[in-house]
Amino acid sequence: MIVGIPKEIKTMENRVAMTPGAVGAFVRNGHTVLVERGAGVGSGLRDEEYAAAGARLVSADDAWAAEMVIKVKEPIQQEYKYLRDGLLLFTYLHLAADKPLTEALLESKTTGVAYETVQLDNGALPLLVPMSEVAGRMAPQVGAQCLEKPHGGRGMLLGGVPGVEPAEVVILGGGVVGVNATKIAVGMGARVTVLDVNHSRLQYLDDIFHSRVVTLMSHEANIRAALCKADLVIGAVLIPGAKAPRLVTREMLPCMKPGSVIVDVAVDQGGCVETIKATTHADPTYVVDGVVHYGVANMPGAVPRTSTFALVNQTLPYALSLANKGCKALRDDAPLARGLNTWQGQLTCSGVAEAFGMSCESLSGVVQAL
């Protein structure tokens, strides 16, 4: 198969979908890999390294002309022109928060397989985990910076100092993002409260953090009470493939302290905060009702070298399977099949269909027809 790796063009997105080592694996399996010139520069990977691994260095048009295109982030509007019938696209899509892209994929009849909905039988999301780990660990760091006065915050040090109390950090969600955010926030010396709807998850968090965090069942009354004392709120909720639930409403914000901060990691799935909107690394924050909002939708793009290698470690086996077998790989691999979001102008992800009130084809029926 001819596989294309275009350069990411989202604002300040420096990750790349394939390392030179991964290129070598594709070449050894008999595939042709077309890497856009400069695609890996942001991650510290030179064109010469890709060429030495067997890739052909090409233009963006040529990379997108491949049979399968592997990316990191979803296509943005400038890239819609490349979508077409017969193209197999393997990348993060996050369609439940992006109706224009959903419509573009359906109209073009592009086959879209989304990293974030590849799901193991036990519910784990293997291709979302590495970036959730990165974003979770970044969230307290960027939140701490936003709390600084020059960035519009309350002027607090997250961990305080002897004789001065630390910041109160509230984390909504105890999954992969939440656990990693808790690790860093606790390590920085903050007082941390984690809310989740799953009691077993709260028991797990209490065990692994040895009672160094407060755990609360996530419901409106507890969320509201937690917000009123918070200096930093981290949104870390996820419903696979679907739009994030709105846990923090606009009318809750006035109870928060002036200069407090919200970092909504769920923003690429629409966000769990009503007042959140997607921002960029170039202009990451804005203020609503005195609360600083951080809504960067590609947080791991700020640490591209770490993120690229972490992502490719997980995507490579699935990408190779798609290259080796084409769409028939979906029939042989149930977790990979769950990643199918669009096919032949049909929507196959129920979470996306529910978000936009669209019809959805049976995934099992589509997969059997491949």
Rank of each mutant, 00 (worst) to 15 (best):
A181R: 00
G155L: 07
A104T: 07
D62L: 14
C228Q: 13
N313L: 12
D207R: 14
G21W: 02
T91G: 06
G241D: 06
R15S: 08
H199D: 13
V213Q: 02
V3R: 03
M131E: 15
F90N: 00
R305W: 10
A114G: 11
S132L: 03
V186Y: 01
G235W: 07
R37E: 13
C327D: 12
G174M: 09
M12K: 15
P150K: 14
L320H: 10
V58Q: 01
I9G: 08
E361P: 00
N298A: 07
W343P: 00
G351I: 01
V263R: 02
P245C: 05
T275P: 02
A226I: 06
A60L: 08
A226R: 03
L253W: 08
R250S: 13
E251Q: 13
C228E: 12
V186E: 04
H210S: 12
E107Y: 04
L340D: 10
Q269G: 10
K257M: 05
L125V: 09
Q346C: 14
E36M: 01
Q344W: 06
T11I: 12
E36A: 07
R331G: 15
M68K: 02
T249P: 01
A302K: 11
S218P: 08
A236I: 05
H94W: 09
S350G: 00
G153P: 09
L34Q: 13
K229A: 01
V303G: 11
L93D: 04
V367D: 00
G38V: 10
M68Y: 01
E13Y: 07
A221Q: 11
L202D: 02
L127N: 05
A39V: 11
V367H: 05
A244P: 00
L330M: 09
T111Y: 06
V312E: 11
A135C: 09
A242E: 02
S260C: 12
A53I: 05
P245W: 06
V129T: 13
G173T: 05
G235E: 04
S132H: 10
S359P: 00
I234Q: 03
K99I: 06
T32I: 01
T285P: 08
Q119D: 14
V292E: 08
L83S: 05
C327F: 04
R154M: 15
A236K: 00
L147W: 14
S260F: 11
G365Q: 15
L205W: 02
M1T: 13
L89E: 03
K7S: 07
A310I: 11
N14F: 15
V3C: 03
D121P: 02
E274F: 04
C146S: 13
L101A: 12
A226Y: 08
S218Q: 14
Q78T: 14
V3G: 03
Q141S: 05
H31E: 07
E74Y: 07
S59T: 15
V41E: 15
V237Q: 04
D264C: 10
V35H: 01
D207H: 14
A278C: 13
V291D: 03
D283G: 07
H199M: 12
L89I: 10
L45G: 09
Q145L: 14
A167F: 09
R305A: 14
A242T: 03
V292G: 09
